[in-house]
């Protein structure tokens, strides 16, 4: 493509017909647009680091305050170990990642309200999925950083450190959960009326899902009806395998992490269910991306 004059560039872009792109050009364009959108999110984060700082401080406060709250709980109350912080660690890792992913739709919603999203939608993106992928990469990086900080902190607090493979599996679980929840949050950002509605949904989802999961207390501690809800809650399927890895240094992928009335779920089974959840979320957002957003 020559760029000697503007008019020649104009003619070139006219011949450059969109649907006939071959696959390798499509992929390189997709990478280019995704990288640009991701870069923007990181620029915002670095120039306005308050969300990053809050995101790192909050899980530590959970650990310290909740840990202190249940310090004198009777022995055996929280699983087999007497150490509540060890028990709580898994919940805090998951809940922190979940909270971050749930908020992923907010910047997109503000872009929509400020007309910035229209600018993105006006661009000849190869796929609007690049908007979703950019958000997912951004939130995943944040969650990764948060998880590392939490894992190090509970190690210092005496909960120990899983082996290398264990840490890898924990990260995999967190990433899959983040992917699923990020796409749900973006789906909300594309379909709800405005940021007020989105914040309302986030508020009404966030804490109830925490309390209706095994983050703070084991299944055995719950009344039957709450057990049912906790077992339908995807968060439990992220928390329990992580907790198992923490409590059983000799864990294996086939070890049973959750015993539900309808059957037992292994560590790898939990990861499978979460992957299914992510696939459904990613699939459900596709029609919303194609729709024009008036």
């Amino acid at each position: 493509m020559t760029q000697s004059t503007r008019t020649s560039q104009l003619a070139d872009s006219a011949q450059f017909d969109y649907p006939d792109l071959n696959l390798s050009i499509k992929i390189s364009h997709f990478i280019q647009e995704t990288r640009a959108l991701t870069k923007r999110l990181f620029i915002q984060l670095i120039r306005r680091p308050s969300t990053l700082i809050a995101g790192l401080v909050q899980p530590l406060m959970w650990l310290v305050l909740f840990g202190a709250l249940f310090q004198n709980a009777p022995d055996g109350f929280m699983g087999t170990s007497g150490q509540y912080q060890k028990f709580l660690g898994a919940g805090v890792i998951v809940f922190t990642a979940f909270g971050g992913a749930l908020n992923a739709g907010l910047p997109v919603m503000f872009d929509r309200e400020f007309g910035f999203l229209n600018r993105l939608l006006m661009a000849p993106l190869v796929s609007r999925s690049s908007i979703v992928v950019a958000s997912a990469i951004f939130i995943m990086s944040l969650s990764l950083l948060q998880s590392i900080v939490i894992i190090s902190t509970i190690a210092i607090l005496g909960a120990g450190l899983p082996n290398g493979l264990g840490i890898l599996l924990i990260m995999a679980i967190v990433m899959v959960l983040v992917l699923a929840v990020t796409s749900l949050s973006l789906a909300l950002a594309f379909s709800l009326k405005g940021h007020v509605e989105l914040i309302a949904v986030i508020l009404v989802t966030n804490l109830p899902l925490l309390f209706a999961s095994t983050a703070l207390a084991p299944l055995s501690f719950m009344p039957t009806w709450l057990q049912w809800i906790a077992l339908l809650n995807p968060l439990s399927y992220a928390i329990e395998p992580i907790r198992y890895i923490y409590q059983h240094p000799d864990w294996s992928l086939n070890a049973i992490a959750i015993v539900a009335p309808w059957g037992s779920v292994s560590l790898i089974g939990c990861l499978g269910l979460l992957s299914g959840f992510a696939a459904v979320s990613l699939y459900s957002i596709q029609p919303l991306l194609k729709r024009s957003l008036g």
């Binding site: 280019q32 647009e33 661009a123």
Partner: peptide, 13 residues
């Protein structure tokens, strides 16, 4: 630059 990337312009363009 972001807009340039969204319109798939090369770095030189």
């Amino acid at each position: 630059e972001m807009h340039g990337d969204l319109y798939h312009l090369s770095k030189a363009q």
